[in-house]
Amino acid sequence: MTLNIGMFGAGRIGIVHARSIAGNNRSKLVAVTDLVPQAAHSLASEYDAAPMSADEILADSNIDAIVIASSTNTHVDLIEAGINAGKAVFCEKPVDLDLSRAKACLDIVAGQDRPVMIGFNRRFDPNFTTLKSAFDAGEVGKGELLSITSFDPAPPPLDYVKVSGGLFCDMAIHDFDMACWLFDAVPETVNATGACLIDPEIGKAGDIDTAVITLRFDDGRIATIRNSRRAAYGYDQRLELLGERGLLSAGNVLENTVIKSTLDGINSAKPEYFFLERYMRSYGIGWASFVDAVLDGKAIPVSVSDGVNALAIAEAAGLSLAQGRAVELDPILKGVV
């Protein structure tokens, strides 16, 4: 059976997902919609799909699943619309910028049986999955300290910053999900510090561009996350997990594997420039897991609940930054803060 897909959003991330759909022999992109008709037509024509309206996609009984790659403020409404139309749903992160809306969406999803997956693609990076497999197998014993480095090569456009939800909801949210996934738990407290060191205009827009977040789990384990909107040498994505019997590390993926050893020193290539280069494989692997869940009944690897947890951590980080203190996560998840 082939899974017929309707795509919502024909921008940069929609194009990435279209490649993953086309690269899987059990899925086919059949329809595309976008607020910019020309963008929908362009993407649809590349994959022999049809440009349609959102309502047409939802009403088409030949479309089995939808991919939500549109702006974040559309995610919850489209998840609910997709469910109501009887379709499986793959939605880009985050679920929403508003935690209460995301939690309400979780309640709706919990009451139906169609698969709904959130697109935290880094879980599917082969290096990170290998690290987690080694950790889960007990190769370094109990995990004690997790260190996540995530530096972008350059800040995003200011217009994007203003609608992104900020560094915690847009950028660090990937790392919050990674910490929960690797430790198989949500943190007890969140402590964030940050500054605007790169572009004063980001600060004027109410955001930061540099941050360190510490997550403390109820058994004492600690995760530290370092974020920056600028690394002059490229996209820096590294993990270290210290356990009682050793250390697991996942380094950067480089532009090439050539090492130059001369009298002047030893040099290697820079990290791949940005997420489109660094994580393209992970998008395809993640998509395959969604197809397997829909067609074969396998478990959804990233749930709406996972998305809500990451968003709650982002909200706690924002509160911690504003108040200069560690913030307990449980009251935020329960909506009593």
Rank of each mutant, 00 (worst) to 15 (best):
D60W: 13
V291L: 12
V190S: 04
L35M: 13
Y160M: 15
I225V: 07
A312D: 01
I118C: 01
R226E: 13
Y283P: 09
D264A: 14
T210D: 06
R114L: 15
L242Q: 11
A44H: 15
A31K: 11
K270I: 14
I259E: 03
P157Y: 13
T130D: 06
G234I: 04
G220E: 00
E328C: 09
F183S: 08
A102Y: 05
N62I: 03
H41A: 07
I83D: 00
S249T: 13
V32E: 00
N267V: 08
N25D: 14
S150Y: 11
A134N: 12
R122N: 08
A104N: 03
A269K: 00
N127C: 09
A293C: 12
F151V: 02
R245K: 09
T72V: 12
D218Y: 13
E139N: 13
S70Y: 03
D34V: 00
G203M: 10
D48T: 10
A179K: 05
D64I: 01
A269F: 03
G265M: 00
I118Q: 00
S133M: 11
T33V: 02
D306N: 06
E144A: 11
S20K: 04
I57R: 02
R230C: 12
R114I: 15
I5A: 01
A102L: 05
V190N: 04
D136Y: 15
A10T: 05
E272N: 06
G141S: 00
E144I: 07
I285Q: 03
A326S: 13
G206N: 10
F168W: 07
T257A: 15
H41I: 07
I108T: 14
E80T: 07
N267F: 14
P200T: 11
K260F: 05
P156C: 08
G165K: 02
M178T: 12
L35W: 15
K298R: 12
G23S: 11
A205I: 04
V186S: 14
D125E: 08
T210A: 04
A85T: 09
Y283G: 04
A250M: 07
M7R: 00
D184Y: 14
Y160D: 12
V89H: 03
T72G: 05
S261A: 13
F124M: 03
E139R: 11
S150C: 15
D113Q: 15
L145D: 11
V308S: 13
A49I: 05
Y235S: 09
A314M: 06
A49T: 07
D175L: 11
D60A: 14
E255M: 07
